[in-house]
Amino acid sequence: MSTTAWIILWGAVATYLTRIGGHLVLSRFERVHPRVEAALNAVPAAVLTTLVAPAALTAGPVELVALAVAGLMSLRFGMLQLFLVSAAVLIVGRQIFG
């Protein structure tokens, strides 16, 4: 097997460890302290925000409009409609302006 294939397989092992690791560590404790509970409940907002923020900071006007549309649509619609409309705004905007 090639070196590349070995790296891929070890990368897969490392990735699976991250996916199961948090649960394995936490399940060793019988009771979860309320502050740990509060920390875990903050995970979605905390992590997902970091996947958006740097991109939003360097975004141009078209990208910001697409984000604003996504933000407004999130108040009323599901993820599918939100994503399709915002993506259309982005792609059409880029065709026209940039």
């Binding site: 907002a45 905390a46 925000t49 996947l51 939003a56 996504a70 994503f83 993506a87």
Partner: peptide, 27 residues
Amino acid sequence: FLLPIYFFGLVMSFRTRANWLPVVIVS
């Protein structure tokens, strides 16, 4: 920019959680 849009939608979907806004701002 497609994934940032998608992830932003997900961030918004958690907006009723406790401390959502301060966590989003600080993160």
